[in-house]
């Protein structure tokens, strides 16, 4: 009896959370407060390594935010916390007002990991169908979505092929298709263009711009500063786990009186050999 009541209460609180996710029109899509993440160090003699150090960040609905930083700055780690892969040492993060530790916080997210991945034994269509089921997209609707995302990323012709037979660029596009299957409002893309040829990069950039046009929020990491300049509303530069600079691209350029690339180099402490 007691257990029944408890389960009922749980269900209704879950329903409440869902309703909050669907119906509140919060402008802050992503909020990170005082976030620190620690790893057991890979170096000898050092106990722990602070990969993210006191990070604060707010992203508004409809923004395209470029998360910049050199290799090892902590970009992937930050995203890993947002997706619940890694636990924060301190601080908190929420997406659409829901703590990222709750699975339901991920209902409206699309995520593209840094490195490619695939189930060896599934083709793209089956993969998308599997993920769609997890998002509880009803059957006919799901088939329509699969058609439309495959068309968007240009993989209709290869939908019945195993992803492992794809080229790198095609795998990345399959990754994007997977990230878009639930028609997400927030996209978290970890270096979506790294390792792609110019055509592949262009294609990914087009997709990001298209999503921006649809009013989606995009949070992506990169060190391709040129493309960041063209697609981002706002950027943040991370170095050694700390956010050094954050603001609109034009404002930063005005403030520093130089290109984004030079700002980036200055901030990470790179001195050009003259």
């Amino acid at each position: 009896m007691k257990a029944k009541v408890k389960a009922g209460a749980l269900r209704s609180s879950l329903a409440q959370t869902r309703r909050r996710i669907y119906f509140t029109n919060v402008n802050t899509v992503l909020e990170i407060t005082d976030l620190s993440v620690e790893y057991p160090s890979r170096e000898k003699g050092v106990g722990k390594k602070l990969a993210v150090n006191g990070l604060n960040l707010k992203i508004q609905a409809g923004e395209v935010f470029g998360f910049l930083g050199p290799n090892g700055a902590g970009k992937t780690t930050t995203m890993n916390v947002l997706l619940g892969f890694v636990n924060a040492k301190s601080g908190s993060a929420s997406i659409f007002g829901v703590d990222v530790r709750q699975p339901i916080a991920r209902q409206r997210i699309g995520y593209l990991p840094e490195l490619t991945y695939y189930y060896k034994f599934l083709n793209t269509e089956e993969l998308l169908r599997f993920y769609g089921t997890i998002f509880r997209i009803p059957g006919p609707e799901l088939e329509r979505r699969i058609d439309s995302v495959l068309k968007l990323v240009g993989l209709e012709h290869a939908r019945k092929r195993l992803i492992k037979t794809y080229s790198k660029g095609m795998q990345q596009r399959a990754g994007l298709a997977q990230a878009l299957i639930n028609n997400p409002d927030l996209l978290i893309l970890d270096e979506p263009t790294s390792g792609l040829d110019p055509v592949g990069r262009m294609k990914v950039r087009e997709i990001i711009e298209r999503l921006k046009g649809e009013g989606k929020t995009v949070f992506f990491s990169s060190h391709e500063l040129g493309e960041v300049e063209t697609v981002c509303d706002r950027v943040g530069i991370l170095n050694q786990g700390q956010l050094k600079v954050e603001g609109r691209v034009e404002d930063l350029v005005k403030q520093y009186q130089c290109h984004l690339e030079q700002i980036f180099l200055k901030i990470i402490g790179y001195e050009a050999a003259s």
């Binding site: 699975p103 991920r106 991945y117 993920y131 998002f135 990754g175 978290i188």
Partner: peptide, 17 residues
């Protein structure tokens, strides 16, 4: 190993599930 766990757990799936 194949990193499929990342896109999977980035969906509303709990680890218990």
């Amino acid at each position: 190993e194949s990193r499929t766990i990342f896109p999977l757990l980035a969906k509303p799936v709990s680890r218990a599930e």
